[in-house]
């Protein structure tokens, strides 16, 4: 204490902690305000202009938003595609991550190696993965159609079919379940074993244990995973760019791809900024909805003092 300046020693412990807290978060806060907060505010201002990304920057008020919502023929196509992809990849991605996490929670030899293997795809370059999936979905020589052929099924033309291109992208999204699997695994390992023992004493079978112990205890983690996956899935871009380029036609034109096209191909940066804000609002509303709906389903542990 003798090393501390006199004024600091006069502060209460709580005040000292507060001061330390603000000092420690200050570098991040400065970075956030300068490099994220600033551009966010700027992009909103740009969304109220007809900025081409280069020169023209006239104030147009809400015209971009009005045009997007009422006149842009692509907007509702893009919305439909994005929601289709988002809903499917959240449901399938979360369920698959949970299933794999349960498998990875077994006490069997080599489980750590298996966990590493399942996580490995998540540390691979996104573009490389997309190209690899392009080959996997090759209608003639791809692994997927080969596997289907073993069951007598003739695989579709995946990314060159308006019907199958979106399901193809959704399947590709499942490749990235590794981080969710790790989060759910940590959640599973945090469930006290006594609860399972108590359930078994009460005559619960495996399904009952899963339904009445695992799911409720894991619900906050599952909810977190679902929200994070939803936010990520609504921002899908690179797989679309590499695998389908938004096609065939507009079959896989999703929100961020359309935004990118407007910003960097069509020189409509103001319009693209408005799209970014609409996407932001959609994600915020969906997150809020998920919180509302989950109030009864998600059970947080309450520590009573």
């Amino acid at each position: 204490m003798a090393l501390l300046p006199k004024r600091l020693t006069q502060l209460t412990l709580r005040q000292q902690e507060e001061r330390s807290f603000y000092l420690f978060i200050l570098p991040w806060l400065i970075g956030f305000v300068l490099f994220t907060g600033g551009p966010v505010v700027y992009s909103f201002l740009m969304s109220l202009t007809n900025w081409t990304g280069i020169k023209t920057r006239d104030w147009v008020g809400l015209d971009n938003y009005i045009h997007l919502l009422t006149l842009d023929p692509n907007f509702w196509i893009v919305m439909k595609n994005t929601f289709t992809y988002g809903i499917a990849s959240v449901i399938l991605g979360t369920l698959l991550a949970l299933a794999v996490a349960i498998l990875m929670n077994q006490k069997i030899p080599g489980i750590r190696i298996l966990r590493t293997l399942y996580y490995l795809p998540s540390v691979t370059s996104g573009i490389a993965i997309a190209i690899m999936w392009g080959w996997m979905f090759n209608p003639k020589a791809g692994l997927i159609n080969f596997l289907l052929s073993l069951f007598g099924i003739q695989g579709p033309n995946w990314f060159s079919s308006t019907l199958w291109a979106m399901p193809g992208l959704i399947i590709v999204s499942l490749w990235g379940i590794g981080p969710n699997m790790i989060i759910l695994l940590a959640g599973l390992q945090g469930i006290p074993q006594q609860l399972y023992e108590a359930a078994r004493i009460d005559g619960a079978n495996r399904w009952h244990e899963f339904r009445y112990v695992t799911v409720p205890m894991l619900s906050p983690v599952l909810f977190y995973v679902a929200v994070i996956t939803m936010i990520g899935s609504f921002q899908i871009f690179e797989n679309v760019l590499v695998l389908t380029n938004g096609g065939p036609g507009t079959a896989t034109r999703v929100f961020v791809f359309d935004l990118y096209q407007n910003a960097f191909v069509n020189s409509r940066m103001g319009y693209a900024s408005a799209q970014a804000w609409i996407l932001c609002v959609i994600i915020m509303v969906l997150t809020w909805l998920m919180f509302r709906i989950s109030r009864r389903q998600v059970q947080y542990e309450v520590v009573e003092e």
Binding site: I131, M132, G134, W135, F137, N138, P139, K140, A141, G142, N157, W158, F159, S160, S161, P248
Partner: peptide, 10 residues
């Protein structure tokens, strides 16, 4: 389109 995809995927 499908034939092109089968020849030049990735």
């Amino acid at each position: 389109a499908a034939e092109i995809a089968s020849v030049g995927a990735g």
